[in-house]
Each structure stands twice: as C-alpha cells, then as structure tokens.
Design a protein around this nucleic acid. Structure first.
Length: 966
DNA sequence: GGGTTAGGGT
C-alpha cells in the first residue's frame, strides 16, 4: 500500500516549487525508510500545497513583448534557446543593447522563473532598484509581485516573485543562510566585467554550485573584451554577442609630449585647455573630462576660469555635495564642461555628452601585503577602462574622444583593469568563506587567484582580530563577526565595546566609519563648512567628533520634520543622503547586535572605554610620535596625521588610526590619542616580550628583571619591571638558589634555612680564623645540593615557603657540618685560634678576618673604652697561639742579613724557638732573644729587631668600642 | 606640516 503511494509522491515532487523540493524530498526519503501514516498524510498535504504554489506561479506568468528598438530583441529567440540548451551562457554587448532589462524576460520565455525565482544581480543599489521598476513597468505589474527587488535597507521581494533584482552583495549574503541557493532556478550576474570582489567571489562559488545543482541556469553579462576569460572559467560556455546601440566615436590622440614636435611638453592642465579649444571648433556640445581625482578637478576648474562666461564648468565626483551633483542632470543654457572622476565611468551616466577628454589616469587603490598599507596612487588606466570612457560620448549621437596620450601608449596598456580581488585586503572575504565552510581557499576556483601572500595576510588580520585561531578555524568571535554586516575590524570594535560597556558610542562610530562621511566641504565654502563642523570637533579624538555629530543629528532628526532636517543639513554642510545611510546602517547593526544579545549602555561611556574598544580593531594601526609631526608605526612604517583631522595641530604622543592610506604621503585618517598601556592590555595576544637583565631582588625575595614590549615591531614599552620567573623559570630558579640559599641573601624565618646559614657562617668563620680558604665545600657543591633537592617550580622566596610548608620532604634540606667541610680539612686546630682573649679576669672577644692586604686582615681585639687602660700591651704582642710561630719566623726573617744568617733555615729555628717559649709570658722579643741565644749562642741586639715590616695579620688589631657600641 | 576613487553587505 505504502510503496505505490511513495512513488506517487516522488512523481508529484517534480511539480513542486523548487525551494520546497529538496526539503520535501528529504522528508520523503526518511518516511520511505520508516513509514508513519500520520506523517505521510502531512507530507501529502505539503506536496499538494507546494504543487499548487508552483501552479500559481505559472499562472502569474505575464504576457510581454520586446521593445523593437532594442538590439537584444532581435536575438531573443536565439538567447532563449541557448539558455535551454546550456547551463551557463555569456551575453556580451556594449551599453544600450538592452540586455539588462530584456534578459530576465528572455529567461521567462525560456521557461525559467516558475520552478524557482530568476535572480538578477547588479553591482549598485540604485541600478537594482531602477531595473526592477523598469521591469515591473514592462511586465505591467507592480514592484513586489511578479518582480521584486532587494537591496540593503530595502526588501520588496517575496516568494511570489518570478524575477528578483538585487545587488550582488545581497546574493552573497543569502549564501550564508542557503548554501544551495534553492529558491533560484536561474541567476543573471550582470556587469561581470566590473570584476568587483563580490562578483569574483560569486563567480567562483557558482562554478562549484553548478556541479551540484544541475537544474540551475547561469547567465553572465559582460563587456565583450572580458567575455572570453569568463567563458573559459565556465568550461567554455557559449558567448552570445549582442550589438550595442551606440554611435561611432572618433578617437584623437593628443599626448602631452609630442615626439614629432620640438615644443615643450604640456602639463595636464594646458592639455585640457587646448583639447577644449579643439573641440569647440567641431561645433557645440557638452564635454566630459576624466581626471584622476578631486585635486586635479579643482585645479582644472581654476585653469578654465576664463571660459566661465561661455560655459558651465562643473566638477563631478562622489563626495561632491548633492546639490552640486544635481546640476549635472539639469543642463542649463550654456555648453557644459564636466570635470569628473571615475564616478562618471561606471556609477553615473551623464546625459547628453558629445565629447570626451580622457587624461588616461585614475587613482587606483592597491593594498600592499608587504607594508600592510593601502595605496591610492595615480595610475594609467587600462584599455577597457579607456574605451568605457570614450563610449560615454557615443550614446546620443556620434562623438569625439580626445585622449591625452598617444596611440602607442594606449596599445601598450593592460587590456583590462586588474580585478579587485588581486589588490585588496582579503580578510572580509576569507571570513565569509571560512564561515560557509568553503574549504581550502587555495583550491577555490577564482577566475583570478589572489596571490598566496595576500591570502596569508588576510588570515593574519583575522588572527590579529582573534576571529580565527592558529589552525585557521573560526573562533567564537569569528562566528559573531561573520554575522555582522560590517568590516571585520569594525565588528571587532563592537564586540569589544560590549566588554568595556561602550556599545552605544562605538556603534555610532563604527557605522560612521563604514558609511561615507556626511560632512561636506564645498569648494568655495570650505571655511564656512569647517566652522560649522568645528562645533563637533574633539581635540583628542576624531572618533569622538563623529560621535558628537551623531548625537547632534539624532537629536535634530527626532525634533525636526523631514523637510526641516533637510534644510538644516544643507545649512550646516551635512549631506542628508549620507546621513540617512549612516542612520540606516546604525539601525541595521543595532538589530544585528540584538540578535547577538549585545546590549547598548544607557550610561555614557568614558574616553578610555570607547577608545579601548576601538583600539581592539586597530591594533596594527597605532603610531608613536618620534619626530615633530611624524609617527612611527608598525613594521617601521612612518606616517603623518591627515590635515583634515582635529588632531592635526596638536598631535598626541601615541595614536591609533581608523585607516592608513598612502597618497602623496602616508596619511592616517580619523585618529585618536591613546595611552600606550591600553595597547599592552588590549593587544596582549599580539605583544612580543623581550626580557633581559635578570637579577636577585632581595627585598621581594624573587628574581626580577626587565622586558621590552613590542607590537608588530613598534616598542610600546621600552622597560618594564617583571617577575623574571614568568619568562624564564629555569634561570630564575638557578638565581634563587644561588643568591637566597647559597649566598644567604634572603631574610626569612624558616628554621632549616636559618640553621644551614649559621652552619655555613661557622665554617666561614673557621676559615677566617685559620686563614685558609679550603675548608668550606665550594659554592658549586652547595648549589648542587639545593638544586637536587628543590622541585623545578621553586623560583622565589614565596614559592619556596609554600613548598616548605606543604612538604615534609623539605626537612631533608638540612645540612650537617660534615657535608659542609671538605674532607681534607676536617682536622683543623681551632683551639690555637681562640675566640676569647683572656687577661687576668678580663675576657674580650677576638674576631678573625682573612683578607691579606686589607686593613682588617688578621685578628681583632674588641676593647670597650672603659677597659682600655687595663690592657696589657705586652701580652698582645703574643697575638694568638695559632699565629705565634709564623710571627717568630717573620721576626727572624726581618733581621739584618748578617744576623739573619745565624738562623738558617729560618723555619726550623722558628719552630724550635716556639717549642721552647712559654706563650704569653713576658715580652715576646726579649724571650725570643733568650731562646735563640740558648740554641745558637748568638745574641741578637735589641735594635736589630724590626717590627715595621711585619705583615699586618701578625699584629693584633684593636677596635675600641665606646658606650654606644661604635 | 597641509588634502583620497568608486562600489557592495549577513
């Protein structure tokens, strides 16, 4: 019974809506193994519902025609057939072919859009919205039904859509949720030749996905020049060429330097003037001049001042105040000369252009993995880019393009602009790829593989942000970052702000950094604009300036009507549209934070809390001011504060920068002063420690030392006191044993240590008394004794005491006197070196010191001042028994030569004389003379005895102590 | 001491 039913279900599944298909099939497979009547019933209902849904889609298929005027309309049958026959096709053709709007309809004609949605991607939001409007109009429906669109901040799409127009970023974002892109049966990737990061990532991903989803069709549109490369990437997909509807453009090459002329080379400005002159002779028509940047545009509008009464000279660049941008689209009476950056090449279409002047240059952003700095240098544009520029004057009639370079130069240029993926930091892309588990990035089928060093550098940044671990796996932080629709650096700041309780402020700041700066500086009102903006300026932090601006605008937007706010913005040089963007971004991120359960603080956060959070995303963009206006940053990079910064006049010692870009110089833009200690704390995981100079720190009974802290090569702390045991426990243990235990440089109350110490002192004293150095076992033996007994983790007084208290074994550390005295020195005559000097009833201490040459060398008798007169000096001549023989010998040797020769060998005479003398009785020299006469019969005359040259240690030293003990 | 191109998003 069940079996035929299952077969019926499997059959019906074929007619379901595709987004349901895979889910329902999985349910069916589960039930086939494990049938359950109730669930089978539910499945049947679901299948019927989905079938019905698909039928409704089919019924919603509108009637449509192709506008005859469009070239693509001629090919619609051919294209529809190609779609049916191939999984991937390329459609190329220049602007005006109508491919963008007609392709979705051709897909419908080919039967697409019923099983699943036809997804159509655009690089820019405005274009996506405009195209969906246009399509809805042509299909006689409203946006949101048959045709939907979805861009950031605006979603008018639904499962009812047959066609859904969106930005490529949206499709990428959807990938995170649905790796199979199941809701689509067809994808149109438009403007693929632009080769943005998004497009390259999408094309790589789709190449893999197409193998798994054989039912998915892919249509890629591109400019003709790039089509082959892309087709090759998709296993030589067929390329269908659609003619454009453009007029011929005449090329004229007018290089600055003419090789056939002796004239001096022109500069760019002069060349523009003469090109405009030349074009004026061709008849009236608006001119579009392509220049690399705002600077050149400003300069050119100055040079062209003299034309102002005849022509409108209009600058055009993305940061231009919107009011001024609008003038481009409302031509006045005069001939217009529009001085434009690359905005006019792709993003904006300037209507009614008859002439183009192309400088052949553009500022190109390149990220250097070597210096980790973004460069924005003026470069020669590619042939593709030059042709695109020229094409801008062939849209309404035949045009003329003057290139300010020669034809050879053109022919030698790169055919296309290097795709973005080869010249940008890849951290954000890698984060996404890791997050959707795309596996090894080296294996990912990019059309142009990014340099391995660039990939490595992307991982480096992610590791610095703690988004991935050493094995390139996503961390908890990384998972959160992947869910925040913002640059990973900025996302990291937000996550850090949760910890410092500054999310409110950091959210406003990070969204400002992600959006474009809404502050406008119109060319002729720069000072007025600066004055208005100065109200928000913070002298320590450009981030705070942004936050001040945010608070002001938020407050105003709550109080004022939409129109009043608009007027206020205009008056105060704020770009209202950009402010809306900032506001929207803020709202979106706030929602994303809510999902991550990150709360906004109600109490204002202080400077440290805000900037420590910001710093966590900018750890490799810090700098130390080591010259008047110059900073030393990571990897020996030098940079300057950008002149637009509020800190430009008062540069702080330490700063961090939201971005570091090299233009005319390496500039740090949006900066703030920081405390170097913050770097140590926030950047703990990146700090390198260079320790040095370990020493015994007696007061703390531990091994101290110093360390230098660096972060990517920058010294963030030159000399910091440390507990050396942390960096080198082994060495610290050695130093501890030597100083604390062997040398006794440790004050403590531990009996074992005290006793050992006093034993050692006793033996040392013995050495002094016997004037020998070979009694105490040597230092190394003592060291070895302790080293053998102590566990490896004992590195300081504190750790020793802990161990000692907890461990009975520690008692074995006790030394005994025999181990301390060397074997060959165990029979020393100590009695001959008394510690007490006796004279009648007087007993005074004798101390010994063994240091030949020193004043203290020898025996010292300590005499209190009060007993000084009682001291019998004659008795002290005898010094101590242990030294008397040596003293006698010294006396004999001190005799004049004629006398001395009577007593040869002197040591024998000294020994015999000493044996006969009675120690301490009468005058030493008198008694000695007597004894010597007894032995030899020779009498030493009194003046022959010399005492001056006697070694010091053979004369008793006297130390008189007064009442105070001095 | 002195001034940066343009797009895109969970």
């Amino acid at each position: 019974m069940t079996q035929p039913l299952l077969q019926q279900f499997a059959h019906d599944l074929q007619d379901c809506w595709q987004a349901d298909y895979f889910r329902l099939r999985a349910r069916l497979n589960r039930l086939a193994k494990n049938p359950d009547q109730k669930q089978l019933g539910q499945l049947q209902k679901a299948i019927l519902k989905s079938k019905q849904f698909r039928e409704n889609r089919s019924a919603a298929l509108p009637d449509f025609t192709y506008p005859e005027a469009l070239p693509v309309s001629e090919n619609h049958k051919q294209i529809a057939e190609a779609i049916q026959r191939h999984q991937v096709i390329l459609v190329c053709g220049e602007t005006g072919s109508g491919k963008t709007t007609q392709l979705p309809k051709i897909c419908l004609e080919a039967g697409r859009g019923i099983n699943g949605i036809i997804g159509h991607t655009q690089p820019r939001r405005i274009a996506a919205q405009a195209i969906s409007n246009r399509l809805a109009e042509e299909l006689k429906t409203e946006v949101g039904k048959t045709v939907g669109f979805k861009v950031r901040f605006r979603d008018r799409s639904s499962s009812e859509n047959l066609i859904k127009v969106m930005t490529d970023g949206i499709l990428l974002a959807e990938l995170q949720q649905d790796h199979w892109l199941n809701q689509y049966d067809t994808l149109i990737i438009d403007e693929a030749h632009e080769r943005s990061l998004n497009i390259d990532f999408l094309l790589g991903y789709l190449k893999q996905l197409l193998r798994k989803r054989k039912d998915l069709k892919l249509i890629i549109t591109s400019a003709t020049i790039d089509a082959e490369r892309i087709a090759a990437h998709f296993n030589d997909a067929p390329v269908i060429e659609v003619s454009g509807r453009t007029y011929p453009v005449e090329m004229r090459y007018r290089p600055l330097h003419d090789p056939d002329s002796d004239d001096d080379p022109l500069d760019l400005q002069q060349a523009i003037v003469s090109a405009i002159d030349e074009l004026q002779k061709e008849g009236r028509g608006d001119v579009l001049v392509f220049l690399p940047g705002e600077g050149e545009i400003r300069e050119a509008s100055k040079t062209l001042r003299h034309l102002r009464d005849r022509m409108d000279i209009l600058p055009l660049y993305a940061r231009l105040p919107s009011a001024e941008q609008k003038r481009i689209f409302h031509p006045g009476g005069k001939t217009r000369v529009i001085l434009a950056t690359n905005v006019a090449e792709t993003s904006l279409t300037v209507p009614g252009i008859r002439y183009v002047i192309d400088s052949g240059q553009a500022r190109i952003s390149r990220y250097s993995w070597r210096s980790k700095v973004q460069r924005l240098k003026i470069e020669k544009i590619s042939q593709a880019s030059a042709n695109q520029r020229a094409g801008r004057c062939g849209r309404t009639g035949p045009g003329i393009c003057i290139r300010l370079y020669n034809e050879d130069d053109f022919n030698n240029r790169q055919p296309f602009t290097e795709p973005e993926i080869l010249r940008t930091n890849l951290a954000a892309v890698i984060l996404q790829m890791v997050s959707i588990r795309l596996g090894d990035i080296e294996q990912f089928p990019f059309i142009d593989k990014p340099d391995a060093r660039l990939v490595k550098d992307g991982y480096r940044l992610l590791r610095e942000l703690q988004a991935v671990d050493d094995r390139k796996n996503l961390t908890a932080t990384g998972k959160k970052l992947a869910r925040l629709p913002i640059d990973p650096r900025l996302g990291k700041m937000l996550l850090a702000a949760e910890k410092t309780n500054a999310v409110t402020e950091v959210l406003a700041i990070t969204t400002a950094l992600a959006a474009q700066d809404p502050r406008e500086r119109p060319q002729h009102k720069q000072q007025a604009a600066d004055e208005k903006h100065a109200r928000f300026r913070d002298e320590k932090s450009d981030f705070i300036s942004l936050f001040n601006l945010w608070e002001y605008l938020e407050e105003q937007s709550e109080q004022l009507s939409h129109n009043a706010l608009r007027k206020l913005c205009q008056k105060e040089f704020i770009n209202h549209r950009r402010w809306r963007e900032w506001h929207n971004l803020h709202r979106q991120l706030k929602l994303a934070l809510k999902i991550l359960i990150i709360k906004l603080n109600k109490e204002p956060a202080d400077y440290a809390a805000i900037h420590r959070a910001l710093l966590s995303g900018l750890l490799d963009q810090i700098g130390f001011k080591d010259k008047k206006f110059e900073y030393l940053g990571c990897r020996n990079q030098r940079f300057f504060i950008f002149p637009g910064s509020g800190l430009h006049k008062k540069p702080p010692k330490w700063l961090m920068a939201a971005e570091v870009t090299e233009t005319t110089k390496v500039f740090a833009r949006i900066v703030a002063g920081i405390q170097p200690q913050w770097i140590e704390q926030v950047g703990k995981h990146l700090i390198k420690h260079h320790s040095s100079e370990p020493y015994w720190q007696k007061s703390k009974a531990r091994v101290g030392g110093y360390e230098k802290l660096t972060l990517c090569g920058l010294i963030v702390n030159p000399r910091r006191n440390i507990n050396y045991a942390v960096v080198d426990p082994e060495l610290s243990r050695e130093i501890f044993i030597r100083h604390a235990l062997v040398y006794g440089e440790w004050k403590n109350n531990l009996p074992v240590i005290q006793e050992n110490r006093s034993l050692i002192e006793q033996v040392e004293n013995l050495e002094a008394r016997t004037r020998r150095r070979d009694i105490l076992i040597d230092e190394q033996e003592l060291y070895d004794f302790y080293a053998k007994m102590l566990p490896a983790n004992i590195t300081s007084g504190a750790s020793f005491e802990r161990w000692y208290k907890q461990n009975q074994n520690a008692r074995k550390l006790k030394l005994d006197k025999n181990t301390l005295i060397r074997e060959d020195a165990r029979t020393v005559n100590v009695a001959a070196m008394p510690e007490i000097w006796r004279q009648d009833n007087l007993q005074l201490p004798l101390t010994y010191h063994f240091e030949p040459g020193s004043e203290q060398d020898g025996v010292t008798l300590k005499i209190p001042l009060s007993v000084l007169p009682q001291i019998n000096e004659t008795l002290t001549e005898w010094i101590v028994p242990g030294l008397i023989e040596e003293k006698i010998l010294a006396h004999i040797r001190g005799l004049p030569k004629s006398v001395r020769k009577q007593f040869v060998p002197a040591p024998d005479f000294a020994r015999v004389a000493n044996e006969r003398l009675k120690f301490g009785e009468n005058n030493l020299l008198a008694e000695l003379g007597k004894v010597l006469k007894q032995i030899t019969g020779f009498e030493v005359k009194k003046p022959d005895w010399r005492t001056e040259n006697l070694p010091l240690h053979l004369k008793m030293r006297f130390e008189v102590i007064d009442r105070e003990g001095q």
